[in-house]
Amino acid sequence: MNPLDLLARLGRMALAALASIGRVALFAISTFTNMLRPPYYPREFALSLLQIGWLSLPVVALTAVFTGGALALQIYAGGARFNAEAVVPQIVAIGMVRELGPVLVGLMIAARVTSSIAAEIATMKVTEQIDALVTLSTNPMQYLVAPRVLAALVTVPVLVGIGDIIGIAGGYTVAVHNLDFNAAAYLKNTVDFLEPLDVISSLVKGAFFGTIAATMGCYYGMQSGRGAQGVGRATKSSVEAAAVLILATNFVLTGVFFSL
């Protein structure tokens, strides 16, 4: 291939990527301005709280408890190589709260909520329900997008907090019942070792990840192409984008909180 052709192709790809980033950024800005501007739709917000928050609890709890338990086993087995088995409570606590809790909850929300929002809004677009909203003098950004993103912004930090606690409880259960740790000492070590910044970073990450998950679901739903294929593509793209953005944001936030 001619080097100039290759360069042109790379240039086109870079421009397309930048245009996509620009479109998502404009969509996010529009979402936040519509969140602040009346009319407000409390019923839609309450339904979104239920869908995103309450109904995600079982999957978040199961993910956290198994991860906490597995983490305890791994740390015990790994620590045994250099006689450091006693650090299980501390590493489980810091691992769950700083990293695994927010990331795994974020990814589970991306899988469950982002896909659901994208499929729902894309279907509404394909069946002209979005057009119908406009003809009924209702702004889809205010009626569909803003309540979902706001609900995710509010509920995902709570889910992360719950996930952190359940993950630590999973580690505690394994450590106390399988690895013969003293229950009171385990709890004391956990509480003593965690710092306020650990918890704050966990909750802030949750807020970012929730916002990303819902925004990506809404964006790809609203951009959906026609037909079943369009809905499928919107759903797949939304989950991919949300997952990658969550992991990238996690890296940046970890740097901001703990590298200073």
Partner: peptide, 11 residues
């Protein structure tokens, strides 16, 4: 305006 959509477009 009022509009009847092809597929109904009911919510």
């Amino acid at each position: 305006f009022g509009m009847l959509f092809q597929g109904g477009a009911l919510f």
